[in-house]
Design a protein around this nucleic acid. Structure first.
Lengths: 200, 200, 200, 200
DNA sequence: TATGAATGAGGGTTCATTCAT
DNA sequence: CATGAATGAACCCTCATTCAT
């Protein structure tokens, strides 16, 4: 890789990192392209060599960061000794919620967009080379469960929306209850949902 | 009420209605104060006599419209002959989802904000004189059920977030399934959740 | 007229005058809105209260200045004792050419646009209240000539294009001859053209 | 010619052709250097190896294309059996007008610049090796006419400006009359002009 | 000769907010 | 109370030009 290519890659990285910092601290709307390039130390025009506009870079970041989060959750899961399917889902769920609680900027950024649409995109569009194929992981979990599931995709959809939506309220506003108080409720609800989708 | 007062009230109404039309058709970000006042037929300065800024009017509208929606759902429910608690919840749920599906602009407007925080505000802050006290209605439903519920507020929270979040994806993107396909899934899930919260 | 209205009119005037100065000195392309408002002493946004964009103000200026020029020519003509039709046309022609030679910025500004399209617009769209109805003047001249003309509009069109086009080259570049050298050529050509259109 | 030289010449050609296509389709102002080099398949810096800027390439194109047009007109003329001087001029005039009417992009591009200044440059600056020496052709036509002309250059100047200017309006705007309606007017006017310049 | 990433000034335009009337 | 002209900072984006490779 030549000097130019290195420089080019470094600029891209710097723009991505800077954007992420600003989006998670100031929010998307309050972050201007000027803010980004100034802090990244590149010229304004340079931004447009890499991204179409602010929303382009946002989408790439959301996909990347979401994917990253699930990958970390899955890695943590693989270090545990958990065998039952619903236990695994709950572990991942809690892991992600804790991570988001520890980084409210991130939560705010991927907000209601930790929703199905973005989630699916994140898991299929492999932004970076290291991004996981979460679909494969989920299918694997289903197989290893020893059960047969009805509409497994819908089941996952429901769980993700439920967790994301209630988690957001709990983490951001402690309303109507704190995240810690919410967790047992979610656990019980998730177990019920999984139960519903097991085919006899 | 004098003529001046009437005029004053008419202006307020016109600003609210116009804003709502524009927010639901063009979206919040694309609607400027200029758009609103021009269409409402009042001067720009007048806007600031009634509202602090665009977000002030938005919040009041969300609360009002959400409340209205639930009131309509409840009125429709009262015309039916439904006695069981979970059947009532499902009826209201379906009613609201259908209404939002028929008015995507509205859904988009109150979006992820048909969330707990706003919902609660809507039910307590009584924007207009005709707004319902939904808390009372819910408590009533709980009593009439003949059951005793554990954490009824959390139960409602979970149901609302679940329905709002999955419904949004289904209505707006048909993803991963259509609203009609989603409904049986929601029904079953809601029944499980309610079951979980019944105290033996 | 209230203070506000006076102020408003003064701003409009200032914008028009400033734009004209800049257009005729720097040219249209090199004149930015920023230049205009800065020199006019108004805020940038103010410009957009009065004009759609740079081309809007340009069109209004071209029409106004062209009209003005022809009005001056006609006034000068009426102070002379010229009776023959072609003599009148040649007088006006020379008057306009001399005026443009004395103000190359103006010539450059209305350039090839002292063409039929703009000329006609200028004479019909009465920008200011004082703008002449040149069509009426021309028709008057035709009647007073004692002749009957075939296609008088086309005749005028041909003369104007001829004079404008050759005059531009002579005034701006002295190429292929100077304006003074050109005049007799134009005079002879115009007389021939007029002759051609007299119906026997 | 070596491979490198061939390549070099091919690049120059590609830049010229591409620019011409873009100038005649999108217009000069709306065509950026980026557009040109992208479509020509060369690097941005390469453009500056061949041309000073956008206006440099434009001037060379106008000269080249104008010259080409007159050459074609002259070739067509030589295939006809026209002997009288004014008939020849009118033939060329009509040929050029028809060509421009069939290619409004070209007309728009060389616009008011099919004027004397550019015309003369085109006839002297011999952009390509195949460009005609129109001055020689014109002088030939004068000689073959059997007449002696006063100021033949001015006569040509006047005719070209007249035809170019009125033709532009007719072709582009059909205003005040269509090109077909204009032609007889031009024919008559040109004959009068030629007549004026014949020395007895 | 050729490249194309990088530049950064400058473009036009929008719009929430103010305040003299 | 109501007005709406005026503000001017801030926005996004373009693009001719340079220069290290």
């Amino acid at each position: 890789m030549g000097k130019a290519d290195q420089n080019k890659k470094a600029k891209l990285e710097r723009l991505l990192n800077t954007s992420f910092e600003l989006f998670t601290s100031k929010g998307l709307n309050k972050t201007s392209i000027s803010d980004i390039v100034e802090r990244a130390g590149v010229a304004k025009g340079t931004f447009y060599l890499y991204f179409k506009d602010k929303y382009d870079i946002r989408n790439r970041l959301i996909a990347h960061k979401s994917s990253q989060l699930f990958m970390q959750a899955h890695e943590a899961l693989s270090r545990e000794n958990i065998t039952k399917f619903d236990d695994k889902i709950i572990f991942i769920t809690n892991y992600v919620l804790d991570a988001l609680a520890a980084n409210k900027g991130l939560l705010s950024f991927i907000y209601k967009d930790l929703s199905w649409a973005v989630f699916k995109k994140a898991l299929t569009s492999n932004v970076g080379s290291t991004d996981v194929d979460f679909v494969a992981i989920y299918n694997n979990m289903l197989e290893e469960s020893g059960h047969k599931f009805r509409d497994p995709e819908v089941m996952l959809f429901i769980i993700i929306e439920l967790v994301g939506s209630t988690g957001y309220s709990a983490i951001m506003f402690n309303d109507p209850i704190s995240l810690d108080a919410l967790k047992p409720h979610l656990e019980q609800t998730i177990r019920s949902i999984v139960q519903n989708y097991i085919e006899e």
